[in-house]
Simulated assay, not measured.
Amino acid sequence: MNKFHGTGVALVTPFNTDGTVDYQGLKKLINHLVDGGIDYLVSLGTTGETATLAKEEKKKVWDFTAEINNGRLPLVAGIGGNDTSVIGETIKSFERNQYSAILSVSPYYSKPTQEGIYQHYKYLSELSELPIMLYNVPGRTGSNMSPETTCRLAHDFKNIIATKEASGSFDQFNQIMRDKPEDFLLISGDDPIALPMISIGAVGVISVLGNALPKQLSDMVTLCLKGDFTSALPAHLSLLEITRLLFAEGNPAGVKAALKQLGICDDVVRLPLIKASEGLNTLIATQLKQLA
């Protein structure tokens, strides 16, 4: 599973001013990331505003992403939600094309028990022809997937290969590293803590920031994976403020503001999200100039 070591990027979904998917913007974004040294791409994770896309739109985005990528990088498809049977049907009918894995967020809003989370992923694992990455992001889902549940799934199902951890809890990360199977991957789900997570054994990050600054981020992660944390630290620290700004008014409004300023795609988001404010745009622009 070395293809998932390093820097993955959770792609935004560019939109035109009329709200339709901007496929030319998506093409520019994919090429920007390939040229920036990213290691793999995640299509339609939560950063892709997946909750606002219709079934037909999702299929077209997945297919278009595979076409433009053209085998250059490994691809991961985001397929998650809180209706287990619907997610299962989507996974069963998913046309794999170039995709190497599925990233599936822990069920949100419903607040299932740990046993419910386990049974949810058990169901998906038994249906999927592709490996599955777990995704724990309690700040969005409303519930935490415990390290015990994560490691139980990792030990019980060979095709559950990784977890994207965005709980922010180093106690949780430590327990996963201690108790997981040797080949199970811990991946940072938060840009600002990619460095310290790699220091305890994580294999990289699935990033939002990387949409805008792929080279700066991937260079830093590469140094970390080589064990050269002394060289990586200045780059890590230099990215903290831009990362804070990108999330100041919600994701992906901030990173789309940055992408517009970089000339890659517009900053349109779908309701209930709204664009970044003028003040935030100014602050982001200042940071981009400093980091260019």
Rank of each mutant, 00 (worst) to 15 (best):
G116E: 02
I117Y: 09
I117K: 14
Y118H: 00
Y118K: 01
Q119N: 15
Q119P: 08
H120W: 04
H120K: 07
Y121D: 10
Y121V: 06
Y121L: 07
K122H: 11
K122E: 14
K122L: 08
K122G: 01
Y123I: 01
Y123K: 14
Y123L: 12
Y123A: 06
L124N: 07
L124T: 04
L124E: 06
L124M: 06
S125K: 08
S125Q: 12
S125W: 13
E126D: 15
L127N: 09
L127D: 06
L127T: 10
L127A: 07
L127Y: 05
L127I: 15
S128W: 02
S128M: 06
S128V: 01
S128T: 02
E129Y: 12
E129P: 10
E129N: 15
L130A: 11
L130E: 14
P131C: 10
P131K: 11
P131D: 13
P131H: 13
P131A: 12
I132N: 00
M133C: 14
M133G: 06
M133L: 15
M133N: 13
L134T: 04
L134S: 03
L134N: 03
Y135F: 08
Y135P: 03
Y135L: 03
Y135C: 03
Y135A: 02
Y135D: 03
N136L: 10
V137W: 09
V137L: 14
V137Y: 13
P138R: 05
G139Y: 06
G139S: 04
G139A: 06
G139K: 09
R140T: 06
T141G: 02
T141K: 02
T141L: 01
T141Q: 02
G142L: 01
S143G: 08
N144E: 15
N144G: 02
N144L: 13
M145G: 11
S146M: 12
S146Q: 11
S146V: 08
P147G: 10
P147E: 10
P147D: 08
P147I: 05
E148G: 05
T149G: 07
T149W: 05
T150A: 12
T150D: 06
T150W: 04
T150M: 12
R152A: 13
R152S: 12
R152N: 01
R152W: 05
R152Y: 02
R152P: 01
L153E: 02
A154D: 11
A154H: 08
H155Y: 13
H155G: 07
D156W: 01
D156F: 00
F157I: 03
F157Y: 14
F157G: 02
F157T: 00
F157R: 02
F157Q: 04
K158E: 15
K158Y: 07
K158M: 05
N159V: 04
N159I: 01
I160T: 03
I160Q: 05
I160R: 01
I160G: 00
I160D: 04
I160M: 00
I161A: 01
I161H: 03
I161T: 08
A162E: 07
A162F: 11
A162G: 05
T163C: 15
T163D: 12
T163M: 15
T163Q: 14
K164F: 12
